[in-house]
Amino acid sequence: MSVPRFWRNLGSRYNLEGTHCKECGEYYYPPRDTCVNCRRLGKIEAYKFKGTGEVVTFTVIHTAAEGFEEQTPYALAIIKLDEGPCLTSQIVGDPEKVHIGLRVRSVFRKLGSDGERGMIYYGTKFIPDEA
C-alpha cells in the first residue's frame, strides 16, 4: 500500500478513530463520511472507539496473503466492537485460544511492511481480554 494511502487513515489504524451519526446513533468503524441509514441527512462526527469487543467469527489462515507469509498460522477474526460496528483484524497469540464469543481488546502492532526498504505499517490488532 502506498505511503499516502496508508498515512491518510493513520488515526483510524493507530487509534480506532471512527465516526458516529448523531442523527440515527449508529457508529462506524472503519469510518464513513456518509451515514448508511440517514445518507445526506446524517450528522457525522468523529468518534474514538474504546477498543473492546468480541469475536463474531474467525479463521486460522494457513495460506497467507502476500506479505503475511511468515506469520502463518494466524487467527483472523471479525470483531464486534462494544459500540456496535464490526471490523476485521488479526487476533495475536495462540490461534488455538480463539473462539466465537471471545472478549478481546486492541493492541498496537505491526500490520506489515513494504519489503525491507519500504515503510512499516503499524496499526491495531486484538488480543484476548483476560481482565
Binding site: 489504524r13 474467525f58 479463521t59 496473503a65 503475511f68 500490520l111
Partner: peptide, 17 residues
Amino acid sequence: REWEGMAGATFPGLYAM
C-alpha cells in the same frame, strides 16, 4: 483492500469465517 486486506484477510479466509 484497506480494511480487510490490510489485516491479512485472504478470500479463503473470508469465506472460512
